[in-house]
Lab assay of single mutants.
Amino acid sequence: MQIFVKTATGKTITLEVEPSDTIENVKAKIQDKEGIPPDQQRLAFAGKQLEDGRTLSDYNIQKESTLHLALR
């Protein structure tokens, strides 16, 4: 499925993911596309910060959802 990640600079990244993917996997995909190390990424959805060990389906993130990326 496709999801979107909006960066602090307003850029939107499109990612191909599975509901079973962990947040860690998603951060690795962002690193592949943007070169941002996962340990510098903070992802949020619906106002909640997402934890590495959880999956997209844990957070009820569905196709075409938009996550927000902040850098630490």
Rank of each mutant, 00 (worst) to 15 (best):
residue 51 E to S: 06
residue 50 L to C: 03
residue 27 K to D: 00
residue 39 D to F: 15
residue 12 T to E: 06
residue 5 V to C: 03
residue 42 R to D: 10
residue 15 L to M: 05
residue 14 T to H: 08
residue 7 T to G: 07
residue 4 F to G: 03
residue 65 S to D: 11
residue 61 I to D: 00
residue 18 E to R: 09
residue 20 S to H: 14
residue 48 K to C: 04
residue 8 A to E: 13
residue 10 G to Y: 05
residue 10 G to N: 07
residue 2 Q to N: 07
residue 5 V to A: 04
residue 12 T to M: 08
residue 67 L to K: 01
residue 19 P to A: 12
residue 29 K to A: 11
residue 50 L to T: 02
residue 5 V to Q: 00
residue 10 G to M: 10
residue 40 Q to M: 06
residue 38 P to C: 04
residue 16 E to N: 13
residue 67 L to V: 08
residue 9 T to E: 13
residue 33 K to W: 08
residue 6 K to M: 15
residue 51 E to T: 13
residue 23 I to G: 02
residue 65 S to T: 08
residue 5 V to F: 03
residue 26 V to T: 06
residue 25 N to M: 07
residue 44 A to C: 05
residue 51 E to F: 07
residue 21 D to E: 10
residue 43 L to Y: 03
residue 24 E to S: 08
residue 35 G to I: 02
residue 60 N to G: 08
residue 8 A to V: 13
residue 30 I to E: 00
residue 5 V to G: 01
residue 14 T to Y: 06
residue 22 T to K: 13
residue 11 K to W: 14
residue 46 A to I: 07
residue 54 R to N: 12
residue 3 I to P: 00
residue 61 I to L: 04
residue 43 L to I: 07
residue 52 D to E: 13
residue 14 T to L: 08
residue 72 R to P: 11
residue 71 L to F: 09
residue 71 L to G: 07
residue 64 E to P: 03
residue 11 K to P: 07
residue 3 I to Q: 00
residue 25 N to W: 10
residue 41 Q to K: 01
residue 21 D to F: 09
residue 52 D to V: 05
residue 67 L to E: 01
residue 6 K to C: 06
residue 63 K to S: 15
residue 19 P to H: 06
residue 41 Q to A: 04
residue 18 E to K: 12
residue 31 Q to W: 15
residue 65 S to H: 14
residue 11 K to I: 14
residue 26 V to H: 00
residue 1 M to I: 08
residue 41 Q to P: 01
residue 44 A to R: 07
residue 68 H to N: 07
residue 61 I to N: 00
residue 40 Q to W: 09
residue 29 K to G: 05
residue 4 F to K: 07
residue 2 Q to M: 06
residue 7 T to C: 04
residue 27 K to C: 02
residue 46 A to D: 08
residue 25 N to G: 13
residue 3 I to R: 00
residue 40 Q to Y: 09
residue 49 Q to P: 15
residue 37 P to R: 06
residue 64 E to H: 15
residue 53 G to M: 09
residue 42 R to E: 10
residue 3 I to S: 00
residue 27 K to E: 01
residue 61 I to A: 02
residue 27 K to N: 01
residue 17 V to P: 01
residue 61 I to W: 01
residue 60 N to H: 12
residue 34 E to C: 04
residue 2 Q to K: 15
residue 31 Q to V: 05
residue 50 L to R: 00
residue 25 N to C: 04
residue 47 G to P: 01
residue 60 N to P: 03
residue 34 E to D: 06
residue 54 R to H: 10
residue 58 D to L: 03
residue 40 Q to H: 13
residue 31 Q to P: 01
residue 1 M to L: 06
residue 64 E to G: 15
residue 60 N to Y: 06
residue 60 N to E: 02
residue 27 K to R: 05
residue 43 L to G: 00
residue 15 L to S: 00
residue 4 F to T: 07
residue 8 A to T: 11
residue 46 A to P: 02
residue 20 S to A: 11
residue 29 K to Q: 09
residue 68 H to F: 07
residue 46 A to C: 05
residue 67 L to Q: 01
residue 70 A to R: 08
residue 32 D to S: 15
residue 69 L to P: 01
residue 55 T to A: 06
residue 54 R to F: 12
residue 31 Q to I: 02
residue 8 A to R: 14
residue 57 S to T: 14
residue 49 Q to S: 13
residue 67 L to G: 01
residue 60 N to I: 04
residue 53 G to H: 08
residue 5 V to I: 13
residue 70 A to P: 02
residue 35 G to K: 08
residue 4 F to I: 11
residue 66 T to S: 05
residue 2 Q to W: 12
residue 56 L to E: 00
residue 24 E to A: 08
residue 4 F to M: 05
residue 29 K to W: 05
residue 29 K to V: 05
residue 44 A to G: 09
residue 63 K to E: 12
residue 38 P to I: 09
residue 50 L to A: 02
residue 25 N to P: 01
residue 27 K to I: 02
residue 30 I to D: 00
residue 56 L to W: 01
residue 18 E to Y: 15
residue 7 T to K: 11
residue 10 G to I: 04
residue 53 G to R: 07
residue 57 S to Y: 12
residue 45 F to Y: 13
residue 59 Y to I: 02
residue 1 M to R: 03
residue 19 P to M: 13
residue 51 E to D: 08
residue 22 T to D: 05
residue 60 N to C: 04
residue 14 T to Q: 08
residue 23 I to P: 02
residue 14 T to G: 12
residue 62 Q to T: 08
residue 9 T to Q: 13
residue 71 L to D: 07
residue 3 I to E: 00
residue 19 P to C: 04
residue 2 Q to V: 14
residue 34 E to T: 09
residue 31 Q to L: 12
residue 34 E to S: 14
residue 30 I to K: 00
residue 5 V to K: 00
residue 66 T to G: 02
residue 55 T to M: 10
residue 27 K to T: 02
